[in-house]
């Protein structure tokens, strides 16, 4: 398969599949690692957007998945946080075998709904479940890169302390930025002395973390994670009085398309 196959009509340029190179790989947790990828001719993205990645086997079989971009739009490369799914077709390769210098086919950036720029303002509530944190991390990093003190709360549900993706970076940013707050909940195992939440996100937790609906336009919420978390959180936020058009959701669906 050629690197520059185009599909569709008027937007073929934007949608062209292109060859990109893996520059660097970092382990985030035992199951998640970040791929830093250089994309020739990349024209930037908005925080929250994703790329489609396509792998082609020697026999021509193709598998395609969508991965949110976790890096800030200000970065010259893109970073994807890949969670290894043992029954996956694509993630075992991207989270296991791929090496710096390898090439991937990808297209993007894609998406105009689950996106945010500092000009959209806040206050922001970013609710993440597991690797659903990736597009929200792009928003946090964009906010930091743009040096805009938009009040932001990250509510992040993970199974255990060792599975908190980007934990060090989130803690480091929040420690020096009074307008950024990170709240963790651990749903399965909590280390000794854990003082954070220890249950799935529910209405009471959202009420405590997000507070009452703000005056004016209210807070702007982005929710990304497994289907059930996303739908429960969205339902709870509306029941708490937050505006439906200010609550944006993305189901990350671990098995991919």
């Amino acid at each position: 398969m050629g690197a520059t196959e185009t599909v569709g009509g008027g937007q073929a340029g934007r949608l062209a599949w292109r060859l990109a190179e893996v520059i660097e790989i970092r382990d985030e947790t035992p199951r998640v690692r970040t791929l830093r990828i250089g994309v020739p001719g990349w024209r930037g993205h908005k925080a929250g957007q994703h790329v489609d990645v396509r792998l082609t086997a020697e026999d021509g079989y193709q598998a395609q998945r969508s991965y949110s971009i976790a890096s800030a739009p200000e970065s010259p490369w893109i970073e994807l946080a890949i969670e290894r799914l043992d029954d996956g077709e694509v993630s075992p390769y991207l989270a296991g075998e791929v090496r710096p210098g390898d090439t991937l086919e990808l297209r993007g950036p894609i998406g105009g709904y689950f996106t945010w720029t500092v000009d959209d303002g806040g206050p922001l509530l970013l609710v993440a479940g597991g690797s659903g944190v990736a597009p929200l991390m792009a928003m946090v990093r964009h906010r930091e890169a743009a040096k805009r003190a938009i009040p932001t709360t990250v509510l992040f549900s993970s199974r255990s302390a060792g599975e908190i993706i980007f934990r060090d970076e989130l803690d480091r940013l929040a420690a020096v930025d009074p307008s950024l707050r990170t709240v963790h909940t651990l749903t399965r195992n909590q280390p000794e002395g854990w003082t954070g939440f220890r249950r799935r996100i529910d209405a009471a937790m959202l009420a405590e973390v997000a507070g009452p609906p703000h005056p004016g336009e209210g807070l702007l919420a982005f929710v990304c994670g497994p289907t059930r978390l996303v739908e429960n959180v969205a339902t709870d936020l509306l029941a708490l009085g937050h505006r439906a058009d200010r609550v944006k959701t993305e189901r990350f669906g671990p098995t991919g398309t």
Binding site: R228, R251, G253, P254, G256
Partner: peptide, 8 residues
Amino acid sequence: DRHLDGNA
């Protein structure tokens, strides 16, 4: 839990 949505 394994549904993507229109974003993808």
